[in-house]
């Protein structure tokens, strides 16, 4: 399980990185950030890039800031960096919860948020978060910069709208209103493993009814996505276990799971109900 040979490049600036990638992408050159998914794939020789463009030394890529209502996450922000107090308000609390579900400590110290997004594993927590909150993906190449909306970024199983010569230079997450309540729930058979189903709920409670609901599901279909029918059902209704069960049933009917196993759909319903209950401050069903 030794990786196949490759050439290694360690640019110091973004311009240098983009230029290297423009030259090497046609020769199966790839970006490496944390490498926590790429290197295992290389060890198994299922990934065999001929060149690696290592962005770990690029100045400024570790930026993490809240500006104009957006949390801006640079390509070298490690999972661990979204720790206690890094981001204020409900979004910060949500990030802490989600971060705690990602793999394990030694992976979180090295793996990056943007790397997970570019890898687009359907079970990735960050992908679910980005899809549910409506993140924006700023990508750059020598050809220029473009902004991709979340629903256009994820293109299917481990597939994104990123072109081979593009780098995801920034993830932007909308800062949540102070009134927002969030709930996240995932199920995996063993601690730290990829989820078999994961759900994220964000909602506000105005005069006892649900407002501005967002409900996302990961690990069940080939990509994470918002469950719009269920959201529509939730809006304007008072939270209750019965309502959340109904929302889960509605969501289930529209799912196209990655495998035929009805168990995965059962799990989808369970995590949806639990995420909603957590957001509404109710005990887990």
């Amino acid at each position: 399980m030794k990786p196949a040979p490759f050439r290694y490049h360690a640019p110091r600036t973004e311009a240098e990185a983009l230029s290297l990638l423009a030259e090497l992408a046609p020769e199966e050159g790839r970006v490496i950030a944390g490498g926590q998914s790429l290197v295992p794939a290389m060890a198994l020789r299922v990934a065999r890039p001929s060149h690696l463009v290592d962005i770990n030394n690029v100045a400024g890529f570790d930026r993490l800031a809240v500006e104009d209502g957006w949390l801006r996450v640079g390509p070298l922000v490690r999972h661990a960096a979204l720790g206690e107090g890094a981001v204020p308000g409900p979004l910060g609390r949500l990030l802490e919860v989600v971060r705690g579900q990602i793999a394990h400590l030694p992976i979180r110290t090295r793996g990056t948020v943007c790397g997970s997004l570019a890898n687009a594993d359907p079970a990735s927590e960050w992908c679910l978060l980005a899809a549910t909150l409506g993140a924006r993906f700023h990508v750059r190449s020598l050809r220029g910069e473009r902004v991709i909306e979340a629903d256009a970024f994820f293109g299917g199983f481990m597939t994104t709208a990123l072109a081979p010569d593009e780098i995801l230079v920034e993830l932007r997450l909308p800062v949540l209103s102070d009134a927002a309540h969030t709930g996240f729930h995932e199920f995996s058979r063993r601690a730290g493993d990829f989820a078999q189903a994961a759900a994220l709920a964000v909602l506000e409670l105005r005069e006892g009814v649900i407002a501005a609901p967002r409900l996302g599901l990961g690990a069940v279909e080939d990509r994470p996505r918002r469950l719009l029918e269920a959201e529509a059902l939730l809006a304007g209704r008072a939270p209750s276990e019965a309502l959340f069960r109904e929302a889960a049933t509605t969501a289930r009917a529209g799912l196209v799971p990655v495998d035929e196993d009805p168990y995965r759909l059962d799990l989808a319903e369970t995590v949806i109900r639990r995420a909603l209950s957590a957001a509404a401050g109710m005990p887990a069903p």
């Binding site: 198994l44 058979r189 063993r190 601690a191 730290g192």
Partner: peptide, 13 residues
């Protein structure tokens, strides 16, 4: 064929 597919219990289990 990997430790991600063959699940050995961790301390959490």
């Amino acid at each position: 064929t990997t430790f991600a597919d063959y699940l050995i219990p961790t301390i959490a289990e």
